[in-house]
Amino acid sequence: MYSQVTHASLALSTDLVIYAARFVRALRRSSDVPAGARVLSLLDEHGPLGVTQLAKLDRCSQPTMSAAVSQLGEAGLVAKEPNPLDARGSVVSLTEDGRDVLAANREVWASTVIERLRAHDRTQEELATAVAVLRDLLESGPVDGAETGTRPERT
């Protein structure tokens, strides 16, 4: 019996990862999200950060992150200012426009979730359970060295 539960739990856990990732990708593809939406989300979660820190959190190269920050800066979604602790570096932060764009995307995504839950006769309690499960998984600590926060990742 234990091996059946373990096998079933493994299969369900795999499905959770696959479907969560697919759903997030589908949401992003369905809305007008700026190319650097992940950067906006990271800044919202962690606060102002240097380009190197952002690159590490996003698991990309520093030149890639610099380009994303430049693009977002030109769009007025982030501000880049000298680092008060290190004159050689800079600190990137969300602007009000950046917060507004992020909030608008999250609202569209939330509406999509609600519509799809209604289409499948899912209840608010089921949604609350799904949120609690994902939150618990994120708050359990880093996954393979990745940073996690206590606030929801809102991309």
Rank of each mutant, 00 (worst) to 15 (best):
V92N: 04
A21F: 00
L40Q: 13
I114A: 08
D100M: 07
A146I: 03
P63G: 03
T64Q: 11
G98N: 01
N83G: 01
A26G: 03
G73M: 11
R59N: 11
L42Y: 02
G89D: 11
T148Q: 14
P63Y: 00
E96I: 02
R25H: 08
L127G: 03
A75T: 06
A104S: 09
D32M: 05
V51M: 05
H46T: 10
G50E: 05
R116P: 08
P84Y: 02
L138R: 15
D58A: 15
D44I: 02
G98L: 09
L85P: 02
S93A: 15
Y19C: 05
D44M: 10
E74I: 00
R28M: 14
H46Y: 13
R22L: 09
S66V: 04
R135I: 04
D32E: 10
R29E: 14
V91W: 04
A35E: 14
D97L: 13
D136M: 05
L40E: 11
S41A: 15
G76D: 09
H120N: 10
R122Y: 11
R122C: 15
G47L: 07
R25N: 13
G76C: 06
D121T: 14
V51D: 02
G73V: 10
L138P: 05
K56N: 07
T129Q: 12
D44C: 03
A104Q: 09
S70I: 01
S140T: 15
P82Q: 09
G50M: 14
E147Y: 13
S140G: 15
K56P: 00
M65S: 01
P142N: 03
V69T: 09
L77S: 09
E125Y: 01
